[in-house]
Design a protein around this nucleic acid. Structure first.
Length: 329
DNA sequence: AAAGGCACCAACCGCACGTGC
DNA sequence: TGCACGTGCGGTTGGTGCCTT
């Protein structure tokens, strides 16, 4: 016995939405708000599937949507985010206010892919295209190529933090600038290249780097990616309600840091702790954290993530810095 | 003017995940 | 623990309009 269909297909319209349908949907959501998509069509007097209503609202009718062409900045941002996240369109869209995942996905397939090809970059791997790369399996050929060029953003930083809860004194905190004119040592860079090549043999597009090779090879790697883009309208997922300040001293005290780590990994925290965290963020630019433990499948089966004992430290105060944290328990 | 090719994008579909029971 | 349900995501499809022949 299969699951019941999401709607009665014989009684639903398909295809393009009419103006009248749009108005019905808008009016209903204005009155009752979003949600309960399955029952919405009937309640709103629409002969549409609930999923269709949701899609129409999210991708087209929502009042906060930004219409019009993508800017050059948006282009670059999408490219950078895609190089980090892969085809996680909703995650990418969460960093572009007013843009939808569907819109970005379409834009990627129609414009950016071509743009990258013209730059000689493989849009899937973000590595230089090889002349002899005529095979359809680009992942195998790219494993022998040079590492990708630096991201064309103003600057990027990777912060690798190894925290042993009992031995915080042995904490390793590794901060690497990936901007043009990188602040990496040659040895670090070499190791990063090796690790990147290793990581390319997997389906994960995330770049692993730093001196923690032993730890990185450990199965219990936890990954927390927080991309610090100036996105004040960012609405964190309910699971990720706690925002992280980019200013290091905000989390220099253990209580706050522990609370932040605690909350970030889906643990309940007190109202007081929450207020403290938000208060700390208000004096500075507050960055919405994206937990890739969940989004990329790391620690999917562990609740909470093993990185719960990590202490959050940050190192950058530049509002435009792309900010990553890797937690290794 | 008609036909064909192409680009664009709204919409659909199937699946995965989270939640409640 | 397993199931049903609601929701969201990513890949794909199909309609439309523009351009070229």
């Amino acid at each position: 016995m299969g699951r019941s269909p999401c709607c009665e297909k014989e009684h639903t319209n398909k295809g393009a939405w009419t103006k009248e349908e749009d108005e019905r949907l808008i009016n209903y959501i204005k009155l009752h708000g979003e949600g309960c998509w399955r029952s919405l069509p009937k309640a709103a007097g629409l002969l549409r599937c609930g999923k269709s209503c949701r899609l129409r609202w999210i991708n087209y009718l929502r009042p906060d949507l930004k219409r019009g062409n993508f800017t050059e900045d948006e282009d670059e941002l999408i490219i950078n985010l895609h190089s980090l996240l892969g085809n996680k369109w909703s995650l990418i869209a969460s960093r572009l206010p007013g843009r939808t995942d569907n819109e970005i996905k379409n834009y990627w397939n129609t414009h950016i892919k071509r743009k990258l090809h013209s730059r000689g970059i493989d849009p899937q791997t973000h590595r230089p295209l090889l002349v002899h790369n005529t095979s359809t399996t680009t992942t195998t050929t790219t494993s022998i190529t040079k590492p990708p060029p630096p991201l064309p953003t103003s600057s990027s930083s990777i912060n690798i933090i190894n925290i042993n809860d009992q031995q915080k004194s042995k904490t390793k905190s590794h901060h690497i600038q990936l901007a043009d004119g990188a602040q990496q040592s040659a040895a670090e860079e070499e190791q990063e290249q090796e690790e990147q090549q290793d990581s390319n043999n997997t389906s994960t597009s995330t770049v692993m780097t730093g001196e923690d090779n032993d730890y990185l090879s450990h199965l219990n790697i936890n990954l927390d990616l927080s991309i610090g883009l100036p996105n004040p309208s960012f609405q964190p997922h309910p699971h990720h309600q706690i925002s992280f300040s980019q200013v290091s001293d905000q989390y220099s005290n253990t209580t706050t840091a522990a609370a932040a780590a605690h909350a970030h990994h889906h643990q309940p925290i007190t109202k007081q702790q929450q207020q403290q965290l938000y208060y700390n963020g208000t004096n500075n630019y507050v960055n919405g954290a994206v937990c890739l433990c969940c989004h990329l499948g790391f620690q999917k089966n562990q609740h909470p993530c093993a990185c719960i004992n990590s202490v959050v430290t940050t190192t950058a105060a530049d509002h435009n810095i792309h900010f990553f944290r890797y937690y290794i328990p």
